[in-house]
Design a protein around this nucleic acid. Structure first.
Length: 437
RNA sequence: CGGGGUGUGGCGCAGUCUGGUAGCGCGCGUGUUUUGGGUACAUGAGGUCGUCGGUUCGAAUCCGGCCACCCCGACCA
């Protein structure tokens, strides 16, 4: 993308309504614009990030065998009456009436709908297990939206739903999804820690929140340093091997980790002093086993091996995709702006032409831009270098290829790593090799 | 939903107390200048002062209703 033609409205000053870093930076870097309280329009750069995050989530869901579907945003009130939640849900649910006076709602979640879809077509235990997910916009009419995209009313969420014929199988599904989540967050460039969450009336301990660490996090969290030492990406665990899943689950649940609500002072005190960790965290995912709550209420059964009817066991698994955009920024930014990871950055690199119009600079920039194609943001504006540096730092592309008249005369460019500030004088070819993703 | 606050050009703000028909900085357009960390000068465009009503010769300013947005708390992916 040529910056001179791009719709990336950056701001030098911070709009008054933005309080936290990620909100300020998302507005300043031209990622989003607020349309109503808690409702945002995604501009080109922001949408690219949102899509990249969604694609990593999708990739890891597919990898553990979940299948993608797409359910509607609008649902029928009747469906929710089947589970009894239409009355229970309260004012957070946006209720709508159509021209025929039929009661509809803008979905805050999809347990009822996925259960109805499953019920219609799955009749035998042989079809299980199943795990279906979708990535869709949801709406919860929060009393007080805030923190920009981190706590909006409309938000993009991945939610998966598992169906199994027994509790034991449901536990496998749960653990498999936990592994997929750990892989997902690692790829997004953040450290996520699963912490035991409240299971409400269902009971048991099969509910975990995934917390990523950021100084401006919403809640205080406590954990064992062990979580910093586990490398999920090295393929130590296979998701189809129950023994591996067991080992993985133990490694995730044995060391201490808790949010302030579930914090146990005594248990935390027992951790050796040098292993104690305490910080702020943002919840970006939640997994939950809830058994037959919906299948029972909605009369879902399948034929078992012995011909008798079975009620499938369910779990649901959410990742806040749009929230993650804000959360990733909270975790990785500095005074100058955003610091994107290579995996989610809207563009792999920014090419800064420090002297647009200079033959040598133009030539090198055009060649770099042609080689990188859609993965580069080319600052071809005729602005001063200072403005270009400031905008590139603000927008946070992981690499900046700085092309100025001094180096260009010798056929050299400067490669800057946004995260560390390191700079290297290299040939354009070397820069390309470093930057390609 | 309780408490507090704000609405004035794209953004940040002053002007409101004490009524006389709107101003500053940034940004934007044009020209010159500058060219490795938001250059300087000149010039120009852009505002029914959130909205409806009232008071007044006259309302951004005073009074009332409404709307929107923000902050603290409770709640939440």
């Amino acid at each position: 993308m040529r910056l001179s033609q791009a719709f990336i409205p950056t701001l030098k000053e911070t709009p008054a309504e933005a309080q936290i870093a990620s909100h300020r930076l998302m507005l300043r870097a031209g990622l989003v614009r607020q349309m109503s309280a808690g409702i945002y329009a995604w501009l080109p750069a922001g949408l690219r990030v949102l899509d990249r995050i969604a694609n990593i989530v999708r990739d890891e869901q597919d990898r553990v065998g979940a299948q993608e579907v797409l359910m509607p945003t609008i649902q029928s009130a009747d469906l929710w009456r089947e589970s009894g939640r239409y009355e229970d849900y309260g004012k957070e649910m946006l209720r709508i009436t159509d021209r025929h006076e039929r009661e509809l709602l803008y979905g805050p979640t999809n347990e009822e709908m996925i259960t109805a879809i499953f019920r219609a077509d799955v009749k035998s235990y042989k079809s299980l297990p199943q795990c279906l997910y979708h990535i869709q916009w949801k709406f919860r009419d929060e009393v007080r939206p805030r923190f920009g995209v981190m706590r909006g009313r409309e938000f993009l969420m991945k939610d998966a739903y598992s169906f199994d014929i027994s509790y034991d199988d449901a536990v496998l599904s749960y653990r498999k999804m936990m592994l997929a989540y750990m892989r997902t967050f690692a790829r997004l460039g953040v450290r996520a820690i699963p912490m035991v969450a409240d299971t409400g009336p269902i009971g048991g301990n099969l509910s975990h929140e995934f917390i990523i660490l950021a100084p401006t996090g919403e809640s205080q969290v406590f954990y064992d340093k062990a979580f910093e030492e586990i490398d999920i990406t090295e393929n130590a665990f296979h998701h189809d091997d129950p023994a591996d899943l067991e080992r993985f689950y133990q490694s995730m649940t044995t060391p201490y980790a808790a949010t302030e609500e579930k914090h146990d002072e005594a248990a935390f005190a027992a951790i050796p002093e040098d292993r104690k960790r305490e910080g702020r965290g943002i919840e970006v995912g939640h997994i939950f086993y809830f058994g037959t709550k919906y299948t029972k209420a909605m009369g879902v059964t399948v034929a078992g091996p012995d011909g008798k009817e079975l009620t499938p066991e369910m779990g649901s698994y959410g990742i806040g995709v749009s929230r993650l955009v804000g959360a990733l920024i909270e975790a990785h930014h500095d005074d100058a702006g955003i610091i994107w990871s290579d995996s989610v950055a809207p563009w792999a690199a920014a090419i800064l032409n420090l002297k647009a119009g200079d033959a040598a600079c133009d030539k090198i920039c055009e060649e770099l831009y042609a080689a990188l194609g859609r993965d580069a943001l080319y600052d071809d504006r005729s602005d001063r270098p200072g403005a270009k540096f400031a905008d590139a730092d603000l927008m946070g592309m992981p690499w900046q290829i700085i092309v100025g008249p001094r180096g260009a005369a010798n056929g050299l460019v400067e490669l800057k790593r946004r995260a560390t500030g390191e700079r290297f004088e290299v040939s354009p070819a070397e820069a390309l090799a470093k930057v390609k993703r």
